[in-house]
Nucleic acid binder design. Structure first.
Lengths: 121, 121, 121, 121
DNA sequence: GTGGTCTAGACCACC
DNA sequence: GTGGTCTAGACCACA
């Protein structure tokens, strides 16, 4: 798998898991792939996946059962949405607003561009 | 001066200079503060400012006259705008589009939020 | 290792790496010695090597994989050759031509001298 | 006047004087322009010219008569030729020979290029 | 382990 | 005064 350069790989892996949860490919209480499976499928060092899982655990998105593996927490979806919302409104949006001003980008430009991106999906 | 935690200080200093150029507080061919002056005003080590200036020079935004100091390049504004535009359209926007989808944020929500931010300025 | 006095050490280290690439001792996509290894072998401060590597990265000669090290870019050889050619034809050659005129050195003298130097290698 | 970036300005000014001497535009024992005149014509700070003159004096190319100015030394031409020869054979030529090898530039290429440069003059 | 950043302080060449 | 380089040593994030 290809990762972005400007974000830590372990965070991108965590994000991957989050999206799988949000979109229902992993449901609450379900077991997620082991660290080694994960490492194999995304082709990174197992330590990196372990770190991603560790981060997810710290956010109360997954939890561990000794000897069994990692499982999705109850309410994980909400937690994820809150984290993403906070990130979106507190970090991304202000940046967008700033850059639009300094680059003279209008709301129309922005909307058109976003629609273009969303169409691709 | 207070710097963000998640971005290298020298890049934030570079950004500071860029904004001063974009907004006309520094004009083309004008001399910018010396490395040491800069270091004193933003309260960092001179090496850190030197690194910022070095980065700006590599981007053809400023140039150096030996023994005299750094000066804004002709065309610096354009260079800066291009760098910022590239960053905006290639990195920030796709992220925004993604998050909007996964958080069910509508274009209207986005527009309202952005306007709110821009009003503050 | 001994360095020339009239050229920054970090540039001489960069040149070292370039020659290793040109002469096939480092091939494309291969990992180059870590900053600290490099520093130990050429006996300079690690920061100086880091700066050399940073410069090489800016020239698209090497790139970094986080946590893993620096690797030779695809096409690095060409990039290096272009840089060296530009330097040769735009800076060194005009100087040679000038000095030959003012010192009354003939083409024959020049050729003989160069052959002498090349034989030593 | 435009100066090269890669060589100290005061040395380029010194070189200018040397060439004027070599080519007979300044003869031995003749007075050369004052530091201030020189500074005005090449458009640099007077200190820079002073430094050039100082260097020339250290090389026994010019000497000073108090209150009168700087004058070309007897034998200046020879001194200059020797300096230039030394520089040419010990510093420039080895570099040329090296680069030719690593860039696969033949003696023919070199000769053609040099002739091209010399024709321009 | 890796690279990346930052500080503090030094020395140099240059203008 | 200016920028440029180098050292020594520290701390951090990342794999």
């Amino acid at each position: 798998m290809r990762f972005k350069e400007n974000k830590a790989i372990y965070l991108q892996i965590a994000d991957l898991i989050c999206n799988n949860i949000l979109q229902g490919r992993l449901s609450e209480d379900e077991r997620i792939p082991s660290v080694r499976e994960c490492a194999a499928t995304v082709e990174v060092n197992a330590n990196t996946c372990a770190r991603a899982y560790d981060w997810l655990q710290g956010q109360d998105i997954i939890f561990t059962k000794r000897g069994l593996g990692y499982f999705v927490c109850n309410g994980a979806k909400n937690v994820i949405r809150n984290i993403k919302k906070q990130e979106f409104f507190n970090e991304i949006l202000p940046e967008v607003a700033n850059q639009m001003l300094s680059l003279n980008i209008t709301m129309e430009d922005l909307n058109n561009e976003i629609i273009k991106h969303q169409m691709k999906k």
